[in-house]
Amino acid sequence: MVSNDSEPADRPRPLIGLPTYYGRGQYGVWDRDAAFLPSVYVTAITRAGGRVVLLPPEQPWSAAEVAALDGIVLTGGDDVDPTLYEATAHPRTQVPNARRDSFETTLYRHARQSDIPVLAICRGAQIVNTVHGGTLHQHLPDLTGFGPHEAEVKDEFAVVDVVTVPGTTTSATIGETVSVRCHHHQAIDRLGEGLNVSGHAGDGCIEAFETPDARMLAVQWHPEETLDDLRLFTELVNAAGDRARMTIDPTVEARP
């Protein structure tokens, strides 16, 4: 993005909300419940020019509270509750985290209502798909024709080549092809209403989709794990900055 030297140097960076999750944490002499999020998410947004507020999955935010954010990253994590898409749990589907599911579905609905840019990552992409009425494959290894989308070794990622769809914002942002780091045993089955596929793996697995207005970009992979390529985060932060400026001054035009 071309900088605008006429803008005030002290203009606040766009504020990006990142949902966290609860887990057991050990730090110092303590072993207690804590709100977690891998720091790479924070680093990616910060390097892309944003500032971060961490959102623990407590009581859902109201529409007015969400509207105070400039952008949102729906972060990765555990499997989405199958009841959100009216399915019975597969034996390999993780125990649902109803509190987080409720928090993030509400967060996304309010974001769309307030025209807040959203980048949805892995689990976040699946949350978005269910909100739009879509469904998920609950365990890819059970299905014929799909290659590995998660590494066999714990705490590692599979490398998957993704081809983007010409004419989409995803393609304009990251190019025609990209090698990505994946870790998902679930994937998009039926795409939700009002969503367009913007990238897929060689085996046909949907790896990216977006809304027609491009205010929501979703990827099934983990771009935060490749900090030397911040294009998706920069796209979000730039869109969030545009929204913040138009909120302050409605006569300001967004980037073309």
Rank of each mutant, 00 (worst) to 15 (best):
L84E: 07
Q113K: 14
S171V: 03
D161T: 14
V131S: 04
N97K: 11
T168D: 04
G175Y: 12
S114L: 13
T88G: 12
R100A: 01
A48T: 00
F36D: 03
T173G: 06
S62C: 09
A151C: 00
E86A: 15
I45S: 02
P148D: 10
T106D: 11
A120D: 05
A172E: 13
P148I: 00
V160P: 04
T170F: 10
G133I: 03
Q138R: 07
G50P: 11
E86F: 11
W61F: 15
F146Y: 14
P56Q: 04
S39R: 14
T75N: 04
A172I: 06
Q126P: 00
N129A: 09
R109W: 03
T43F: 13
T75V: 06
P148S: 13
D81H: 05
A89W: 09
G77I: 01
G167D: 06
F146N: 13
G167E: 05
T83C: 10
R92T: 13
A63G: 15
T75Y: 01
P148N: 09
Q113M: 12
T164W: 08
I174N: 06
W61N: 03
E58K: 00
T169P: 00
T164P: 08
G124H: 04
C122L: 09
G175M: 10
P38Q: 12
S114F: 10
A64H: 14
V52G: 09
G147M: 01
V159S: 15
R99H: 06
S39T: 13
E152Y: 00
H137P: 03
V160H: 02
E86R: 15
T75P: 04
G71M: 05
V42I: 15
T75K: 05
E86M: 11
P57V: 01
T144F: 12
F146D: 02
H132M: 14
K154L: 07
